[in-house]
């Protein structure tokens, strides 16, 4: 299962699906193979905006796949993402640049980073306006970067969220957290309008993201 998923990602990448495909080798950034069914384009299309709500581990898993490429990723607006967890997910910390407290300048900072980075994660402040978000999304499209909004924004190409989560490893007073099964839901526009769900280990016993059932999705 894993093999065929990886293969099709590879294939899609080579064919070059998606916008900005003038760089056909590179039009789609890879996603964890287990989540492939949620991305109709075969991965994160360059130039697109996606949202991930309420799941830092999912943000880390997506970032890791881009980071391993090797790509450059940046995060704006939150000091919360655990660096140890980032390393475990496979992110190269030397190519993961963070601006935790941009203050009023968060949109300007994000726009600057979209100029150069492959993936920019933004935690928009509560007061963020639709105008700001639209401008950033347009900037991402123009620069063929991927904008990952940690939170909700309806203008995104794909919105990911976790609809179910169950940790394993803890008993009543013994054990330790070992693995977690989650249900990830993707809700998109256009070709991704129908909600898609997939059950995955995030992380599995081995720390990796993998499909929880053969027949999922």
């Amino acid at each position: 299962m894993l093999h065929s998923a990886a293969l099709s990602a590879d294939l899609l990448e080579r064919v070059g699906v998606g916008v900005g495909s003038f760089r056909s080798d590179d039009a789609v950034l890879p996603v964890p193979p287990a989540l492939l069914s949620l991305f109709p384009g075969g991965g994160l299309r360059r130039g697109s905006t996606i949202t991930v709500s309420r799941s830092p581990s999912l943000v880390l898993a997506l970032t890791a796949q881009v980071s391993k490429r090797p790509g450059w990723c940046a995060e704006v607006g939150s000091p919360l993402l655990g660096s140890a967890a980032a390393v475990e997910a496979g992110i190269a910390l030397e190519r993961f640049v963070r601006v935790a407290e941009p203050g009023e300048q968060w949109a300007t900072v994000t726009a600057s980073l979209l100029e150069a980075f492959d993936l920019v994660i933004v935690h928009p402040p509560a007061r963020a306006g639709q105008g700001d978000m639209r401008r950033l999304s347009a900037r991402a499209r123009e620069r063929s970067a991927v904008l990952l909004v940690a939170g909700a924004w309806e203008g995104a190409m794909v919105g990911l969220s976790i609809t179910g989560s169950k940790w394993q490893g803890l008993g009543a007073g013994h054990g330790y957290l070992r693995a977690r099964q989650v249900e990830v839901q993707a809700l998109g526009r256009g070709s991704a309008a129908r909600p898609q769900r997939v059950k995955v280990w995030l992380p599995g016993i081995d720390g990796a993201v993998s499909l929880a059932h053969e027949n999922a999705a």
Binding site: R69, P70, G71, W72, S83, A84, A86, V87, L93, E94, R95, F96, V97, R98, V99, A100, E101, P102, G103, Q105, T108, V109, S112, L113, E115, A116, F117, D118
Partner: peptide, 28 residues
């Protein structure tokens, strides 16, 4: 990965905006 010179320029801009300490990478 990406064009490193561009990365450097973008980060210099952000550092110019917020001060050099505002842009970090982590070491675990």
């Amino acid at each position: 990965g990406a064009d490193v010179e561009q990365i450097e320029r973008a980060l210099a801009r952000v550092q110019g905006l917020l001060g050099p300490e505002a842009v970090v990478t982590a070491v675990v």
